[in-house]
Amino acid sequence: MRLGVLLLLAAVWLALSGPYTLDGWLIPVFGLVSVAFVWRLYLALERAAGGGFEFFRASAWLRLPRFLVAFAVKVAAANLHVTKLILSPKIELHPRLRRVPASQKISFGQVLYANFITLTPGTITLDLRDDELLVYALDAESEADVMDGSMDRDVLRIEGSAD
């Protein structure tokens, strides 16, 4: 996984500045140094977190497109709902807090789920503790988006542990 991070960093550097400047020697050296430095920072981060991070298996890339589509649909629907709330002549909100189980197996999946909820307008994750999220929702409809567990299933599916 550390190697994967290194490759990803190198790929991002190549995409951002590589193809234009490979003729000189100075810029590639700068690139190598900066990639090595950021990788070093990542290793320090791993150590500070007390052990390596756990990511999805490589096969998750295959399931990424389907997840992105589900993500875009959910976020678009939530956006329309919150837009309607903002533009309604009299704003009526019924904010509430809910505990939502995050059934993902690894912490990366739980974090992805929490960020998914936060990114969806109308719901925001306050806390993640003991495999449970504390979610603040604007009203009943926003709450229902989370409580019906469909977002949880989306993340489970890309994690590869659905059903």
Binding site: V75, A76, N79, V82, T83, I86, I91, L93, P95, T118, L119, T120, P121, G122, I124, Y136, L138
Partner: peptide
């Protein structure tokens, strides 16, 4: 500006950030 409380305003900000 229309939402009356900080926690509600974060939702408005997330509309601009996503959509």
């Amino acid at each position: 500006h229309r939402f009356s409380e900080f926690y509600q305003r974060t939702h408005a900000a997330s509309v601009t950030d996503t959509a």
